[in-house]
Amino acid sequence: MSTHEKIRHYIESNLVTFDASEAPFTDDDNIFEKGFLNSMFAMQMLTYIETEFNLTVDNDDLELINFSTVNNIVGLIEKKQRGRSSA
């Protein structure tokens, strides 16, 4: 799975809804404003990203905006991966 697919899948598997079709979200929708995720999800997502992609997300990257949409999350991961490969 691509990074994009992994992130979408992880979000979809954590939606607090009885039917995923009830909670459609685009890659640019703010997933927290949709109301389908519980309050612990931001932290879980952070753990997932760090573990799955073997990254460390610094405090400077911890703006909720970085985690608010699929595209922003993918962008953050790719930025961290570029930083790692150029280090």
Binding site: N59, L62, E63, L64
Partner: peptide, 17 residues
């Protein structure tokens, strides 16, 4: 501690965990 505005999503949630 952490970012300004990051108190609930990260610090509180992880501390309570």
């Amino acid at each position: 501690l952490g970012r300004v505005g990051g108190g609930f999503a990260y610090v509180v949630n992880s501390a309570l965990d």
